[in-house]
């Protein structure tokens, strides 16, 4: 079956089976390997993308379910000139990543939070990121990065 959609602003399509997950479609068919798969129970959040602006774990969605939708992945988060986007830059500035594996999901989840809540409290940031697991950073610098990328007054 054919699925056609917009990914990072560009029209794309590919052949899928009914059981093909969006995460698999992005990685295997479209070679957008920035979306990572870190678990098999939709818990870790490494595969987080945006579907029509909403934060979605792409391992919980069939590729066919996003027929005609607009999907944004980590590959679509940089500025048009290729420089790091605001949230990406905050992650680098505040050392909000170490091994980088959870990072795409963290950036996508953070972007979704800031889109609806531009001035989150520290507690709101921590609560929002509960669906994204990081094993490296102890979350300290991730939370700092999200706060810095927001319009909120820094927590520290």
């Amino acid at each position: 079956m054919k699925v056609s959609l917009t990914v990072n602003g560009k029209p794309m399509s590919g052949e899928v089976e009914g059981r093909t997950l969006l995460s698999t479609f992005l990685r295997e068919t479209l070679s957008l390997t920035g979306t990572h798969i870190g678990c098999d129970t939709s818990q870790c959040g490494a595969c987080t993308v945006h579907v029509d602006g909403a934060q979605v774990k792409s391992c919980t969605v069939f590729a066919l379910d996003v027929q005609g939708s607009s999907v944004t992945t980590i590959e679509g988060m940089a500025n048009t000139d290729g420089s790091l986007g605001r949230i990406q830059q905050a992650f680098q500035d505040h050392h909000g990543l170490q091994c980088g594996f959870c990072t795409p999901g963290m950036v996508m989840a953070s972007a979704a939070l800031l889109a609806v809540n531009p001035t989150p409290t520290e507690a709101e940031v921590r609560h929002h990121l509960e669906g994204n697991i990081c094993r490296c950073t102890g979350y300290h610098n991730i939370v700092k990065a999200v706060m810095a990328a927001s319009d909120a007054i820094p927590a520290e």
């Binding site: 990685r27 390997t33 798969i37 590959e75 680098q92 990543l97 594996f101």
Partner: peptide, 21 residues
Amino acid sequence: MKRREDIRFLTGRGVYTDDIK
């Protein structure tokens, strides 16, 4: 110093084993 490797990780261009085809 900020980390140079962050650029590829933050833009989805890291290459982990499962990314290699």
